[in-house]
Design a protein around this nucleic acid. Structure first.
Length: 564
RNA sequence: UGGGAUGUAGUGUAAUGGUAACACUGCAGAUUCUGGUUCUGCCUUUGGGGGUUCGAAUCCCUCCAUCCCAGCCA
């Protein structure tokens, strides 16, 4: 085997890191990154990008990546979210080892740093109300002005801050603020709040604290404490970098991490805002955070996407500072490419039409070998039962075939996959003229799916034997939104909800082999799509299959072009 | 109208002063026991205008467009 080495171009973060490494700017040459979600919701596909960047960079350069739960706002955070976050990262295949941290681990240190800041005259307790503070802050074009409390004495600041911590003041009465510059063109530097009073129970620290540190104070210091070398976040934090650098240059903080920003992942047809996703969950537009239509990690997992395909997807998207919108089609491509290689092929008929093979012996049953996956290196197969009464897909028969149709119609011969060639002879109709059965004859010579004379057929249909097939529920999932940019047209994303995002087929027929399928297996229902076993609702006696995605369908395109 | 950032095919990402490219999408065809897969080909690109240079996506000037920031959220 000849190994072809393709130099993969470096993204801008890798360039920065390699440059830092080459110039000895990294302590011990060990790259330390972190993935720092706030546990206020479930992780979504956008987070996969961040996870892959942070864990991926650490892996590539032989460093480590911390998991840090940024839990500084107890009003929004829940243990349920912490658990789901950890599960989702593991599902993707990343391991933070012992490096599981919580911003709340640093509350004591943070408090001490704040006290020191006050002692140095670099922070003060402000009694301005939220509204007043807003007024004093100025606007984007006008500088702010100093709070009357800005020159409060150090002793009084110390006393008040202590009292805040002791719970002697109500929420909103005081904040601790950094003394930076009320006239800064960067609003984040106009004396940002460092601490606020909140009488909320924290998922980890309970009621120990009633003052909680703010992001701009907590995050950089947490990074410094953990020895993070490259603190990577999304673009909207660019304006916060000066605040980040202010915090990491506080006296006594020895390690200086640096912040870098990349563009977050946007995908058309999907919503990636935690707020909107939470709304969909709370108002039952979906069954939960893990509804297979949700762009959450738990949603795509339940939908049947593989972690490998998701990682491949974000790798193909790349890392840059340009904010754009990635095509949903790229994600589907990645899923199909991966699943094509590993999904076990099965036959399932979702919209059955009875096919009666008139010259096939009544009561006879044959078992054919059906290959599990034509792409597999090691070929395996399973048995599939054949008999006189067969279900085929209703759309695989046409009484009056249109141009280009090469499936079953009267007089036409097709192949039943793995089985025989059959030729349609007549149809049975009910009193309303609906076709209820198709009659056909089979060619015994074509056993196994090919004939000695080598004649070709243009169509091959999947099928199941009526008396051997198993009934199952099949959930046909499609995009949750039918607009590329939900809400763009009317201003309300709910207006773009796809009414057909879930079509449940209660009584689909699947071949017996499907009974062996387990949660986590990747399946392909031949000529139909990729499927998985639902990880919540599937039972042995009532299997539930979720459609992960359809197969590419060039016939559907062709039909659409013909206006059918 | 303050500050910060970003503009390369339809989409995303490369090319760091030396032939603009890769992937997806789209289109056409070949192969095929999945109208899938695979294979082949095609389409289309440096936001505008100036300048420097033998040579500019890249450097300079200027204009334009888009995004982010006025939480006691992260």
């Amino acid at each position: 085997m000849e190994e072809v080495k393709v130099e993969k171009p470096l993204n801008f973060l890798e360039k920065i890191i390699e440059d830092d490494l080459n110039n000895n700017r990294v302590p011990n040459g060990e790259i330390v990154t972190r993935f720092p979600p706030e546990p206020n919701g479930y992780l979504h596909i956008g987070h996969i990008k961040s996870i892959c960047i942070n864990f991926g960079l650490a892996q590539k350069y032989g460093g480590r990546c911390h998991l840090r739960l940024d839990d500084t706002n107890p009003e929004k955070e829940e243990t349920e979210y912490i658990e789901s976050i950890k599960e989702d990262i593991k599902w993707l295949g990343f391991d933070w080892g012992k490096h599981e941290y919580y911003a709340s681990d640093y509350y004591d240190k943070l408090y001490q740093i704040a006290v020191n800041l006050i002692k140095e005259g670099k922070a003060y307790v402000d009694s301005l109300s939220a509204e007043e503070m807003k007024e004093y802050r100025g606007t984007l074009t006008e500088p702010g002005k100093n709070s009357p409390d800005r020159d409060r004495s150090i002793e009084e600041n110390l006393r008040l801050f202590e009292e805040m911590k002791e719970g002697k003041h109500p929420e909103g009465s005081f904040t601790l603020r950094a003394k930076i510059d009320m006239a800064s063109p960067n609003i984040n530097l106009r004396d940002p709040a460092l601490y606020r009073i909140k009488y909320a129970t924290h998922p980890r620290t309970g009621d120990k604290w009633c003052i909680y540190p703010m992001y701009d104070f907590t995050h950089p210091i947490s990074d410094a404490i953990e020895g993070i070398t490259h603190s990577i976040c999304t673009l909207e934090f660019e304006d916060h970098r000066p605040a980040y650098d202010w915090a990491t240059s506080i006296d006594g903080i020895e390690h200086t991490p640096h912040q870098y920003e990349f563009a977050r992942l946007n995908i058309n047809y999907l919503l990636m805002s935690k707020r909107k996703l939470l709304y969909l969950v709370n108002n039952h537009f979906v069954s939960g955070w893990d509804d297979p239509r949700m762009p959450t990690i738990s949603g795509v997992r339940r939908r049947g996407y593989s972690p490998e395909s998701m990682k491949d997807f974000v790798a193909r998207v790349g890392v840059a500072k340009v904010e754009g919108v990635v095509d949903y089609a790229l994600m589907e491509f990645c899923v199909r490419e991966d699943l094509n290689k590993r999904a076990k092929r099965l036959m399932a008929v979702l919209d059955p039409l009875l096919l009666i093979i008139d010259n096939y012996e009544e009561g006879k049953c044959e078992y054919f070998d059906a290959e599990d996956n034509p792409e597999a290196e090691v070929k395996t197969s399973h048995k599939v039962a054949f008999s006189k009464y067969i279900y085929i897909e209703r759309e695989d028969f046409m009484e009056n075939p249109v141009k280009g149709y090469h499936r079953l119609y009267i007089g036409n011969e097709i192949r039943l996959k793995h089985a025989y060639y059959v030729k349609a002879t007549s149809v049975d109709k009910d009193e309303n003229g609906n076709i209820i059965a198709v009659h056909a004859t089979y060619d015994p010579e074509s056993k196994g799916g090919s004939t000695p004379d080598g004649r070709k057929v243009k169509g091959t249909s999947h099928w199941v034997s009526r008396d051997h097939a198993v009934k199952a529920e099949v959930r046909q999932y499609d995009k949750l939104f039918k607009a590329e940019n939900p809400g763009e047209a009317t201003g309300n994303y709910l207006d773009d909800l796809n009414p057909d995002s879930l079509v449940v087929i209660e009584n689909a027929y699947v071949e017996e082999e499907a009974k062996k399928a387990k949660v986590g297996d990747y399946l392909q229902f031949i000529r139909n799509g990729y499927y998985c076993v639902d990880n919540k609702d599937s039972r042995e006696d009532h299997m539930v299959f979720n459609r992960t995605c359809t197969l590419k369908d060039s016939w559907a395109k062709q039909k659409a072009k013909m206006g059918l």
